[in-house]
Design a protein around this nucleic acid. Sequence first.
RNA 1: GCUCCGGUGGUGUAGUCCGGCCAAUCAUUUCGGCCUUUCGAGCCGAAGACUCGGGUUCGAAUCCCGGCCGGAGCACCA
Length: 498
Amino acid sequence: MEAAEQLSELEKLGGKVEEKKKVEEKGLAELPQPHDHVVLRFAPNPSGPLHIGHARAAVLNSEYANRYDGKLVLRIEDTDPRRVHTDAYDMIPQDLEWMGVKCDETFIQSDRIPIYYEYAEKSIKNGAAYMCTCEGGEFKKLKDNSQACPCRDLSVEDNLQRWEQMFDMEEGEAVLRIKTDINHKNPAIRDWVAMRVVEAHHPRVGDKYRIYPMMNFSVTIDDHLMGITHVLRGKDHLANSEKQKYLYDHMGWDVPEFIHYGRLKMDDVALSTSKAREGIEQGIYSGWDDPRLGTIRAIARRGISPESIRELMNEIGVKIADSTISWKKVYGLNRNILEETANRYFLVSNAQKLDIVDLPSEVKGIVERPLHPDFMKRGNREIPFDGQIYLSNDDLHEGKILRLMDAVNVSVKDGAVVYNSQTFEEARELKAQVVQWVPATDSISAEVVMPDASVIQGYVEPACSQLKIGEVVQFERFGFARVDEIGSEGIRFYFAHK
RNA sequence: GCUCCGGUGGUGUAGUCCGGCCAAUCAUUUCGGCCUUUCGAGCCGAAGACUCGGGUUCGAAUCCCGGCCGGAGCACCA
């Protein structure tokens, strides 16, 4: 029986149809338990500039903060002195600004060490934590067998005393542990480390401290103190979320909603921040914004718009399954934006200087061509045409007829170009290929840095002298490119995509 | 190895909780055609997916079991 028949049959018998499921709103999924005052945070560690993976966390947090009219906190997590790179403290806010991510407050964890000490002491006093002086390997052995170490049963007084002593201990001598469940089926969750001695110079707070909190400890304390209601993090933090719940429980605090998303890969770029840093130091990459890197600044330099990145992240959302972003997707989204904003110009790459043979003088003059074919109101560019031009070798095929856009038709003969006719109608009849050109005299020398860092040389039309750095243009038949640098010798562009 | 988690077109997503309106959404992509003095855009059309095998059920992308594949974690990093 068909579903419809069944339905009518059911109705005849007096049964009732089940209620419809609630209709979800399109786009980004709703947060679980959306309170009136959601507070989210973006909490990177300062290892370098932000990359595409950070963009997901940053954008999504920001989107949710906007949607619920909540708050977004930026917290820089620099509690491992050995993994701090000072350049990151400035680069992170810059990258966020570019993405349009606005943070209501900013905290740096190395400013908050005394707070963590205070809570370390509190957790000892309420029996949540204990000082452990076991050797690491020894502890692991016990832990893996669900065995408590001897330190676990020491009194609060003893632990307090050992905590005081810790300030004079050497690295590795003792740690503060949070009690969880020694029988927890996942050994990774059992009695995790909260504080440890680090004898290293902290690039930001120097040698002021010798005891630093572990990420799980400082994060929990801060998330609570800062009133974070929803924690968006990668699924690599799945076990950490579970560890942290024990501390919330010990302290009697409300546990925020944890939301874990999967890993994000970018096809082609698989470079970690540390690998990128190495490459930069070795001179393989020109810098953090080398077009081959997956950093936000590299993407920005290539003329990818922040809007398209935001759109992309919204579309990907917070699924826990991993996803691979293709550049094609990014380009597609970006093209939708650039298509309207970018003005059109001529670029001739692989240029050949030519003097059109037998050109009648009456066809010479100023050629006008719209800045944007769909927005004529923007006006025209003016291109002087006197018969001396650059054409791309890629277009010069012996025997072919070319239509120089808005100028004349020429035939390619023996490596030279000969005047053929003037009108576009004639070009059409001749099935001429329509090509862009630039004048030989006033054109500006240009180079275009491609996504693989190779460089294409060429010339752009004189009107490009009006361009400003950061502007993205479309070179007809060539693709979109961003103005990167304007020098006395010429202009450098970064290629975005077709 | 242990613990946990995933698997919808080339890619990204919706749908999975609460089985039927799903011969599966949208975007990007690719391919045709039209249009266009850009190889861009636009318009029209098309292509392309529920990991596999069992089970439950009148009915399974959706529930159950198993396999396969993939991922994460198993630090005195974050």
